[in-house]
Amino acid sequence: MSIALKLDALSKTFVVGKQLFGPPKGRVHAVHPVTLEVPEGETLGIVGESGCGKSTLARMLVGLLEPSGGSIEIAGKPLDNADPAVFGKRIQYVFQDPISSLNPRKTVRQIMEVPLKRLHGMDKAQRDRRISEIFAQVNLREEFLDRYPHEFSGGQAQRIGIARALAAEAKILILDEPVSALDVSVQAQVLNLLAELKQRLGLTYLFISHDLAVVEAVSDRVAVLYFGSVVEIGRAEDVFANPRHPYTKLLADSAPVVGRPLTAPEGRETELPDPLNPPKGCAFRARCPYAGERCGEEVPRLEGETQLAACFHPLR
């Protein structure tokens, strides 16, 4: 099986408080060096709370953000977005907010035609044929083509967004919280559609979400992000059922589940570390019931067989 997406020590640092003269006020390490591989045909879920760097990671993968360090390989070739007309055919992105990802002043047809024209240089007849094909795949009626985005509900707009991504015929799709703006009944429709498309077209997904249950339901493997680092990665059915990292366990215990009594898994109010002034050692240390001396001095590395955890005191 070949590797669709390979991240090697990929990191991103934002400079804050840029001044006209003198050095910047500080640096935020949004993504600490992350090394990952996504085999062809897999769905890798990335889960984490707000501010954990999951969207920054996603935007780097599609060239919308310049990495500060490390490298990205797409299907064996290094990421190169110098020519947008070539790059778009290799990887595509589905956005969180379906409405704002569609230009309000263009019809759906105009939106759909752009990738076909720019990436594949199709003529009018070819484009019309291809749009019909894609719309059939995502269960959209062709009468929608001459309407404007504001006339659609969130679920329909997200289908249009997916249709646009499909038009590029890229084999890898980055799905950045694709259903978090949708109601649950519509969310299930879109998730099922994504699963079906993947099967039929042989796609590879990187699925980003803050919703543990959703990630678990769609992914083959899941990576848990905390404070810009992958703290645990493993098979979807294992990660939340049998977490190894204490943070993963905290997440799993916090999710409200029917039939489980209400408890606060953490006794006290805790907060994320200050990104401008990150703690030494493990970032989760201050919230961790198992933290020892070593946790305050060294940053743990991802270790393990099939289920890797970055922890000196793993639960299993």
Binding site: F87, D97, S100, S101, V114, R118, R164
Partner: peptide, 12 residues
């Protein structure tokens, strides 16, 4: 806005 990002990825 995200549609500008989308346009970049669509080859513009």
């Amino acid at each position: 806005k995200e549609f500008v990002d989308a346009a970049k990825l669509a080859g513009m």
